[in-house]
Amino acid sequence: MEVTLNVNGSAHPLRLDARVTLLDALRDHLGLTGAKKGCDQGACGACTVLLDGRRVVACLTLAAQCEEREVTTIEALSEEGTPHPVQAAFARHDAFQCGYCTPGQIMSAVALLAEGRAGSEEEIREFMSGNLCRCGAYPNIRKAIRDVAEEG
């Protein structure tokens, strides 16, 4: 199967097995390993990327579904070495430990802020609940997002 994936502003024509997920296409075929595989069942959020600006779990999205759509991954967030404000806030607030869920958490947080859904602690708690963190960094994840939301 042939598919062209538009990832982080570049077009990548690929020849893929029809079963290949967006996550495996990114990781195994494009070398973009920022999005992580935590369950491969759409339950943990570690593979969260943006598809046309909306959050999706890349493990439950087939690469074939992404033709002519814009995929944004963690690799595109920082610009020329300057971290995105959410990345900087995660570092400052120690909003991760092992770091494995972190790219997914950050992509969710970026979308949350863009959607205007980080207005309160309660909103952040609810809308970040699709991203599991087994190390238990949840309180610091909230602090980091709150910080960015308040900076405007």
Binding site: G34, I74, E75
Partner: peptide, 12 residues
């Protein structure tokens, strides 16, 4: 801050 923070928040 963690010395590996930059790598972890950028997915690297």
């Amino acid at each position: 801050d963690r010395v590996d923070a930059a790598l972890k928040v950028t997915g690297s």
